[in-house]
Design a binder for these strands. Structure first.
Length: 574
RNA sequence: GAUUUAGUAGCUCAGCUGGUAGAGCACAUCCCUUUUAAGGAUGGGGUCCUGGGUUCGAAUCCCAGCUAGAUCACCA
């Protein structure tokens, strides 16, 4: 392994600490009695309110000045300054603990525990005056240094590649990122609180499914060895949750990781989180009200109000939300009334509006396409789009009064779908027919059309109460409520293409010597990129190599005797 | 998948029409007992993403690839 200079220095420090009898990775519990933010919030100078504190965290900055030092400690709650004076740390004559251990062997990034009392410095900063410190974990890899003054951040780590691949670094140096993920959890808690207060049951359903149902999307496929069958990673948990309603629960919900084998972009990750909830004896009108309650509660729990900023938009999540049927939405945005049109007329409408379509698209998909191309992005303030075409909604109950439509809504906020819900289809005969229609679509070439889940139909045959179900994209809701532009910013570990790690192969010293290369030139040769003798043997221009090596010698002031092109040519011959 | 931009020190970034790379922070050594992006002085640190090509000579120009971002396409 080739280490950078700074990494090597830290490893040397590690060894030196051990030599001094200090375990850089001690096993014992370290008991703290306070968090940084708590001190900053509650410290009262007049009362000397924190005479005896103990806290632990990472050293984030240091200012060493002779016999005293200032540094910053960051724990999970935030940062606090601490002050270390030589003669407080080292009571006797031996000043090693300060001069050597603290000043030289500790680094930014190390995790330590400190004990002392809180005071205010002359410049007015609340600070821990340390009289004892303990190394808890030595960091041997230097951290990016990010500084901040009056809200202005200097040298912030913003490179997405670093931030997403090494999320731990992102979390260490970007406190607002830590905050986003706290908020994500808070959103989920907010929803869970509401559901539990209503007595709905949180359940877990299979991720590995023999039939990937409940949505139209391309699944990931895997294989079970013992059973020797293919299994799919779920694209939705809908069909399982409805089986549970058949089984007699009044309300069930699940925060589910779903997997879809499709493109990745700012709003799509191959695995993502959806909350799905199904409640018996309700319909989609009831569910709209409930959705308003869920969303506005989450916003209030997070921000204390329903008004949120997203990018340069201000969005108010205070109910009630606008409701408009899909056909009216299309009329509103294009001026064309498509109600009652057949497939052929719809194609013409698409053509006239420059909406792309293909032969395998049926009536429903055409309408859907019109909506997503011409309408969707216009609904910035929360809006329920209701009453969808039957064809794109094979699990939804027929509309009670509008033929050809189903009782379904999607909640659009900031031009994006946040929630999707319906009055669930519970007529088993109708359900079977809809599945068969989907099958025909898939024969037409739509590889997203659903598989038929006969066991699900059997469950419906036993009778499912009228039920309304709803799904919310947790990632997208989190993006909205935390004002993040990309799904990768609300996933701790977004999917990234792996970087191929070529193992570094190096030839041994002996192999170079065999070629007749003088010992002192081996290192320069390697540094120039010839880490194997094989690479060296491919060199055609000995003159250039000699030139490069002499240049390297000069540049690095190695003081080696110059090489002649002939000498180098001799090496290459062997 | 297409187009486009980027990849240089641990980090953030300069580097023009080709001449073997610079800054700030970080790091090292020495001096300095309450500093605030904060001390001062000195110094070390580079596979210029990878592989080819052009050239006496490539971080720079050309081609191919890898990774990431953006836009579009596909897609909930």
């Amino acid at each position: 392994m080739i280490l950078s200079e700074q990494e090597q220095i830290r490893r040397d420090a590690l060894a030196e600490l051990r030599k001094l009898g200090i375990d850089p990775y001690p096993a014992a519990e370290y008991k703290t009695n306070v968090m940084a933010s708590e001190i900053l919030k509650n410290y009262d100078q007049a009362k000397n309110s924190y005479p005896d504190v103990c806290l632990a965290g990472r050293i984030m900055s240091r200012r060493i000045m002779g016999n005293a030092s200032f540094a910053e400690l960051m724990d999970s709650s935030g940062r606090i300054q601490f002050y270390v004076r030589r003669d407080d740390i080292c009571k006797g004559e031996d000043k090693t603990l300060y001069n050597t251990v603290f000043k030289r062997l500790l680094d930014i990034g190390d995790i330590i525990g400190i004990k002392g009392h809180v005071f205010t410095t002359q410049t007015g900063e609340v600070t821990v005056h340390v009289n004892e410190f303990t190394l808890l974990s030595k960091s041997v890899r230097p951290l990016p240094i990010v500084k901040e003054k009056d809200g202005v951040v200097f040298d912030a780590v913003t490179d997405p590649e670093m931030r997403y691949r090494q999320r731990y670094v992102d979390l260490i140096v970007n406190p607002h990122v830590r905050d986003v993920f706290r908020k994500r959890t808070r959103i989920i808690q907010s929803m869970r609180e509401l559901f539990n207060s209503r007595g709905y049951l949180e359940v877990e359903t299979p991720i590995l499914q023999p039939i990937p149902g409940g949505a139209s999307a391309r699944p990931f496929i895997t294989h079970h060895n013992a059973l020797d069958i293919p299994l799919y990673l779920r694209i939705a948990d809908e069909l399982y949750l409805k089986r549970l309603i058949v089984g007699g629960y009044e309300g069930v919900y699940e925060f589910a990781k779903d997997f879809r084998n499709e493109g990745m972009d700012r709003t799509h990750n191959p695995e993502f989180t959806v909350m799905e909830i199904y409640i018996a004896y309700k319909d989609y009108n009831w569910m709209m009200k409930f959705t308003e309650e869920i969303v506005s509660k989450a916003a209030t729990d997070l921000h204390g109000k329903t008004e949120i900023a997203y990018g340069d938009q201000v969005i108010d999540l205070k109910p009630p939300y606008k409701r408009i049927s899909m056909l009216d939405a299309i009329k509103e945005n294009t001026g064309i009334d498509i109600s009652g049109m057949d497939e052929e007329s719809l194609r013409k409408v698409c053509d006239s509006l420059d909406v792309p379509h293909s032969p395998e698209m049926g009536k429903g998909k055409l309408i859907d396409s019109l909506f997503s191309e011409k309408c969707e992005h216009n609904y910035i303030q929360p809006t329920f789009i209701i009453d969808y075409p039957t064809e794109t909604s094979p699990l939804t109950k027929m509309h009670r009064s509008k033929p050809g439509l189903v009782e379904r809504f999607e909640l659009m906020i900031n031009g994006k779908e946040i929630a999707n819900a319906y009055s669930e289809l519970n007529d088993p005969v109708d359900q079977m027919e809809r599945f068969l229609d989907q099958l025909k679509l898939s024969e037409k070439g739509d590889d997203e059309a659903m598989f038929i889940d006969l066991d699900f139909v059997r469950a419906l045959e036993y009778g499912m109460p009228p039920t309304s179900g709803m799904g919310i994209g947790i990632d997208r809701l989190t993006m909205l409520l935390t004002n993040q532009p990309s799904i990768q910013d609300v996933l701790l570990f977004p999917q990234m293409k792996p970087v191929s790690q070529k193992p570094r192969v190096e030839s041994t010293r002996e192999e170079y010597l065999e070629m007749g290369i003088p010992e002192e030139w081996i290192e320069p040769v390697k540094k120039l990129g010839f880490t194997t003798v094989a690479k060296l043997k491919e060199v055609e221009k000995a003159g250039k190599l000699a030139n490069d090596l002499n240049g390297f010698n000069k540049k690095n002031k190695l003081g080696l005797a110059g090489l002649s092109p002939q000498a180098v040519e001799e090496w290459l011959k062997k």
